[in-house]
Design a protein around this nucleic acid. Structure first.
Lengths: 214, 214
DNA sequence: GCGTCTCGGATTGTATACGTTCCGGATTTC
DNA sequence: GAAATCCGGAACGTATACAATCCGAGACGC
């Protein structure tokens, strides 16, 4: 993808995910082109890409609208995410045990340390970013391409629902992250998978509370 | 999406899924434009769409190549599919129990009947089509949009791996389909979900055998 | 007054033109 | 002889122009 197209795609994705462009908003290619300072061609590419990810709905010859936040599907998304992330964590442990994941443990440890630091300094935005980074790193490290693909979409949709409330990464989350890294570093695939599944499940539970509190 | 773009996307998808365009093949937009009788613009759209689904890999300014068939990820894909399809079947039963799924049971029953007929007449291609149709109908009927989206991608990737071997729908598959429909018709969400999960698991097992026999 | 039909503006869809980037081969140099 | 460099062609990336399609406002008829 060209530079402009990529830039527009990411900008538009952020604007949708953060709610700057509210669900139901009607988007015209011309307006987006002016908003992001480019022509309609890169805009088209971005719109198509986000529609494929389910963030936009588009009707033939009638433009695109921001889709509804998938609050009703949250439980489903978490169920899939739990399985998929359990697999990726398990694969990471396998690769470490086989000596084929040089640097992975160090990378994950670094993210966890940074996460605790963000927590101590009370910077929730940084913590949320590091949280996403951690799970993305596990997915990459698993070398399971299909799962990485599926997870990116699922996680983004969960994050989208999250964005309507206050996202907060508690101390427990980072403690659990650390436990997962320990299991991966030990090359224990069973424990790594189980630890990740429990982590996702608790994440779901705490989020569910947050939603109900609204 | 315009008519031309949609046509090219589906044609290209079929050509990749059926192996007409072998993995590793290098694709240029100009060549595809000529092949499908249109200009480069709809071709670009199709290429981008298939790349997003993981069928093509594209490097900036250097064109697209057909990706590798995800044989190594098959176990992972089946694990996700099992959970996701269990959920959709369960949702169908819920909706039937609530009286909100008028016509769904009839639709599913019709597909199952057709499947048995294709089986009796020994038309494996028709059987494979109906199999995909059955699972797609369950996904639609569940009204779980996120799961439908995830499942489409996962199922297509599984089908892709399948296509390199001989796809065959046995009698057992259609018997299981019928059991799933019965559970849905009864509005029994637990049994519907479990029946679907078992069905997917057996499907995976029989496919695994097929792969090893190659 | 309400429904329907038609027409005009607006927006998407496609084609073409041009600039930019990348890859591969030939040349040059060490 | 091998490696690095440079150059030419080819393909992608973006912009612009034009055609096809759709939606809504207004007029007309009932």
């Amino acid at each position: 993808m060209g530079a402009a197209a990529e830039r527009v795609t990411e900008a538009l994705r952020q604007d949708v995910l953060t709610g700057v462009l509210a669900p139901g908003s009607r988007l015209t290619e011309a307006a987006l082109a002016e908003r992001y300072g480019t022509s309609r061609v890169p805009v088209r590419e971005a719109v198509r890409a986000l529609a494929a990810d389910g963030f936009l709905e588009l009707r033939p010859n009638a433009g695109a609208t921001v889709a509804a936040v998938p609050v009703d599907d949250l439980a489903d998304l978490y169920a899939v995410r739990r399985v998929a992330e359990g697999i990726t964590a398990s694969r990471c442990a396998q690769r470490v045990a086989a000596g084929r994941a040089e640097g992975l443990v160090a990378e994950l440890s670094g993210i966890v340390d940074a996460g605790f630091e963000a927590l101590a300094q009370d910077r929730p935005a940084e913590g949320a970013r590091l949280n996403a980074e951690f799970h993305a790193a596990v997915a990459r490290g698993s070398q399971a391409q299909s799962m990485t693909m599926v997870l990116r979409r699922v996680s983004e949709r969960i994050q989208w629902a999250y964005s309507t409330t206050v996202a907060q990464q508690g101390k427990r989350a980072w403690t659990e992250h650390r436990q997962i890294v320990v299991a991966i570093a030990a090359g224990n695939e069973v424990r790594a998978g189980q630890a990740m599944e429990r982590h996702i499940e608790r994440s779901r539970a705490s989020f569910h509370t947050g939603v109900r509190e609204r």
